[in-house]
Amino acid sequence: MRALKVVLVRVLSAVALLCLAGCGALYGWQRSLLYHPQPARQAGESLTLPVDGATLQVSVRARPGAPALLYFGGNAEDVSATLPQLARLFPDHALYLLHYRGYGQSTGEPTESALHADAQALYEHARHAHSEIKIVGRSLGSGVAIRLASERAVTRLVLLTPYDSIENVAAEQFSWWPVRWLIRDRFDSAAVAGRIGVPTTLIAAERDTLIRPERTAALMARFGPGVARLVVIPGVGHNDISASPIYARALVDAVR
């Protein structure tokens, strides 16, 4: 019996050490799981935006004096490749697509606080040339977009495949780990949704398995009455939603 107890203690100790090691690895590597920097593969006009601790690349389509659309992409998105579609859909808008720190030719390391500060810097740059500013954020960028809209004057907000918080998304994806204790970049969109007063559209993918419908529904429930509407694009998933013509029409309707 004593030998069995010794073996049990050793096994439990080994399991505890493995769990601690796993938690340590998850804590240390979590930002490499969340952010997947992409190079800027499409040639085109861009501007350089100096900010605290970094220099940012912004893919642009200039329209002086026109309404401006600020776009914040997903965690593995090359926004230079998104620019042509937005240019077709919004020929009368100036376009500003932010390459997050470490993406494209932007320097620095991406973090939640850095992305929010950079979004504010882009807004301040755009507002000097445009009296009307609209914001679109996709996936990870929906958290950047909604917080910016809660802090600055905009006329439209569009959230593509949005979530209530990255914390909740991660807790679903890594349900066997104590994610809520470990996560550093929470992107708590639900916490700021109640501050939004401009017309807002949430566009979700019917077959999204990364940001599940429950996460979008939980965000939708946090807006004030009549502020937001939800559009679900049928038959598409998280990554192929932008290829749907229904998506394109929904996005145009949301921005205009």
Rank of each mutant, 00 (worst) to 15 (best):
L97G: 08
A3G: 09
V51W: 13
L70C: 12
G235D: 14
S189V: 00
R215Y: 11
A129G: 05
T55N: 06
L20Y: 01
V232S: 12
V252K: 13
I196K: 00
S46H: 11
V232H: 00
S80E: 06
A21P: 11
H125E: 08
P110W: 02
G74E: 12
V232M: 06
A66Y: 09
R10V: 14
A25E: 04
L17M: 14
L69Y: 00
G24W: 13
E77C: 00
A81M: 14
L33G: 07
E124K: 13
A87N: 11
I166P: 02
A3S: 09
I133P: 10
A126P: 03
H116I: 10
A190F: 01
R229W: 00
T201A: 08
G73P: 08
Q30R: 11
P37K: 07
L20G: 15
A191K: 10
V79E: 05
A16W: 11
Q85M: 15
E109L: 13
S113Q: 15
V15C: 12
I233R: 07
T161W: 00
L251D: 03
L251G: 06
A190R: 14
L202H: 04
S242R: 14
H125P: 04
L70A: 13
A126I: 01
R207P: 07
V169W: 02
P84G: 04
V136C: 12
